[in-house]
Design a protein around this nucleic acid. Structure first.
Length: 245
RNA sequence: UCACGCGGCUA
């Protein structure tokens, strides 16, 4: 079943839902009871196909066959619903998970934080963020980054920078993505020199810019017409073994 | 030490 789950996941990820469907059918015909992992891939499959009702049915089937849905099962379905703009339904799944006594982890909360942000409801995302703290689930760097990105997208960069301070104060280390979100924010606001200072700050903090960071910075510099600086950045990239894409 | 759920740029 482990080999099968690997295969199924690759098929679903590659968008070969037709082939995945066949494998799922074979599983059924062989009367094999899937593992929780395979059920979860099943849920992802239905989400990718837009069949959310089928996704809910998998949760019910898992209960029936004594393979209770876990936090990944619920997170997968929530993520699929959020991506389809069905935030209300995703929140419903989250509540059902709580009712079943399953404790959400940082990743489960993150799905909802991004769901609220993508729906243009950053205040809702902040409520989820506060909820996880109240429930003794310490926000990780991804949670901070998600919320910071939502704030920046709404033009609330000041609050995003406050979060960076909170992050550092709680001993949570920003990574390249965290910094890139803030650098992108500066670039979009035409504050290119502050973006460059942020790069210096991340390097000083022991965090190396990655390809995403450089791309954001290059975009910002180009918009400002600072092409000479861009060539310097490209040099720096090759020196640090970061291949431009 | 292996499989399933999150965050940044994408022209």
């Amino acid at each position: 079943l482990t080999a099968l789950s690997t295969l199924l996941n690759l098929l679903v990820e590659a968008g070969r839902l037709d082939l995945a469907e066949e494998v799922f059918a074979d599983l059924r015909n062989l009367r094999l009871v899937p593992s929780a992992c395979i059920f979860n891939i099943f849920i992802k499959f239905h989400c990718k196909a837009g069949n959310f009702e089928k996704g809910f049915e998998i949760l019910e089937e898992m209960d029936r066959v004594q393979c209770a849905p876990n936090v990944i099962s619920y997170s997968t379905l929530m993520g699929g619903l959020c991506r389809a703009g069905k935030l209300k339904e995703a929140v419903g799944v989250f509540e059902e998970m709580l009712k079943k006594g399953i404790v959400p982890d940082a990743l489960a909360y993150d799905v909802l934080i991004n769901g609220f942000c993508d729906a243009g409801n950053v205040n809702g995302a902040k409520k989820i963020f506060d909820m996880m703290k109240k429930n003794m689930c310490k926000p990780n760097n991804v949670n901070f980054s998600s919320l910071m990105n939502g704030l920046c997208k709404e033009g609330r960069s000041h609050e995003a920078f406050e979060l960076l301070s909170e992050m550092l104060a709680t001993g949570c280390r920003p990574d390249a993505v965290t910094y890139t979100i803030l650098i992108n924010c500066f670039c979009k606001e035409g504050r290119i020199e502050e973006a460059q200072r942020m790069i210096a700050k991340m390097k000083a903090g022991g965090c190396a810019p990655d390809i995403g960071t450089y791309n954001v910075l290059i975009g910002g510099l180009c918009r400002e017409g600072k092409f000479e600086v861009v060539f310097g950045i490209l040099d720096e990239m090759s020196r640090s073994g970061c291949v431009p894409n």
